[in-house]
Design a protein around this nucleic acid. Structure first.
Lengths: 246, 246
DNA sequence: GCAGACCTTTGACCCAGATCAAGTCTAGGC
DNA sequence: GCCTAGACTTGATCTGGGTCAAAGGTCTGC
């Protein structure tokens, strides 16, 4: 595998670097990206782009969280992707957006105009290959989520979501010897429900249940402490007998 | 967009062509693919590759149907992808398979050894770009399916599956003026259930219900006639009041 | 400090789909 | 023609999560 190839889209002002690099062409691509880059900020709840709209840019999340959401005519919605900082947004080669992209929290994105980006991609094979890898990763994540949606119980779904968020949370830190993991949930109960194919009431109930059973700790509504992701997923599995049987 | 670029992996013996082509380099790539190609046949129910196994090839389905399936330790399974003829299998750049690949019906695959295929990809930018497009399509399909799994009722799920199968069925033909669509279901009720996140009993009941309500016709267990996909999806939506009220 | 807008929790009840349990249908095999 | 096995259907019952409704919390602006 060609390790020296690298692509991560961001910018040098943020903690996230944007580079489209191989041993030979480093500076060129960097400069190309510089020229076509701009920023956009959104408030929590704002729609970045509606499904079907022309997509004028690709880019990546600098800070905050965005969600990809599908909506049925009758209003049922399903979140189909969660974009955390450094995640890439957009489809080189696609004219129109396929989903609503919504700022779940306050959001800053680093954008690149789509046409020149595509041109750069055509001229720089490594970029297409890196994007292919990234897309394959997204595909794996989507399929992993299909298992969650199709076969897991509400309690297991919550545990899966906490793991995903927890694992990627920037502020993630180990606490004390016990190796507990502490982070803040950046989603409302409703957003969690939309991602998990549940209702917000069920999410709330299951969060309370996990807390009651001592699987997680909750301070306030959003500050979560979990023992370890393995134990979280395990204990969410064996369904809360609370030690009542013999 | 560069229209003359084309990639479809298959072989010239089958109806499916394998080509990795652009206006300039047509014959070369074709020859490269020829050299590294071989066939594999599987019986219905056989496992093509287990999750975690080394993936020695990429390729495409020539005939039959394969499924990508995820299994939990306790045996719950979720199908995360359905591979119909001409669909591409495998991950250039990935060592190990991420899911079980299972022959749902008798299956013939046209395979290319992975290493040389990857090499060819590195040397032929168009191939990487075409694979990116294909992967983006798969990603869209996976996300579409997340909506089905997360938010649709059993009846709607069945309708969605029938649409997908029907639309891609090779034997698809219009019948009479009415423009009805006729095809054979290549899946057992159990396989349908695995794809839809349901049990086989529920699948069976809903199939019977759709038939009883006149939304579809069934001859035998597998031969299906639907009016049109639009009406199928619509009528599956408004839930079978059968005209009893009023 | 109070009003209003959210977000969240909790309770009571209900129903779609799961589970458990018989059957039926069909295609081979002999 | 009969036997068996797998695919399928159907019924009875149970239950996880949805739905509806009513309260807490917490933050913002006044």
């Amino acid at each position: 595998m060609n390790k020296p190839i690298e692509l991560s889209i961001g910018c040098e002002n943020c903690q996230i670097k944007h580079r489209a690099v191989c041993a030979r062409c480093d500076e060129d691509e960097f400069a190309t990206l510089e020229k076509i880059k701009y920023y956009r900020s959104f408030e929590a709840g704002q729609t970045v782009i509606w499904s079907g709209d022309r997509m004028e840019f690709v880019g990546s999340v600098v800070s905050g969280i965005a969600s990809l959401t599908q909506t049925m005519e009758d209003g049922r919605t399903q979140m189909v992707g969660l974009l955390l900082p450094s995640d890439f947004v957009g489809r080189p080669g696609r004219e129109a957006a396929t989903y609503d992209v919504i700022a779940t929290t306050d959001l800053v994105m680093c954008c690149f105009r789509r046409k020149p980006f595509e041109k750069m991609m055509l001229e720089t094979p490594h970029v297409a290959q890196r994007l292919l890898e990234m897309t394959l990763d997204e595909l794996d994540a989507a399929r992993e989520w299909m298992l969650v949606l199709g076969r897991k119980t509400a309690r297991e779904k919550i545990a899966s979501l906490l793991s995903i968020i927890g694992r990627r949370d920037a502020s993630l830190k180990l606490e004390g010897m016990a190796g507990k993991i502490v982070f803040d949930l950046p989603l409302t109960r409703e957003a969690m429900a939309d991602y998990l194919g549940l209702t917000l009431e069920t999410v709330s109930r299951q969060m309370s249940a996990l807390k009651r059973d001592g699987v997680i700790q909750l301070e306030g509504k959003r500050h979560v402490t979990v023992p370890s992701f393995e134990r979280l997923l395990d204990e969410a599995g064996d369904d809360a007998d609370g030690g009542l049987m013999a």
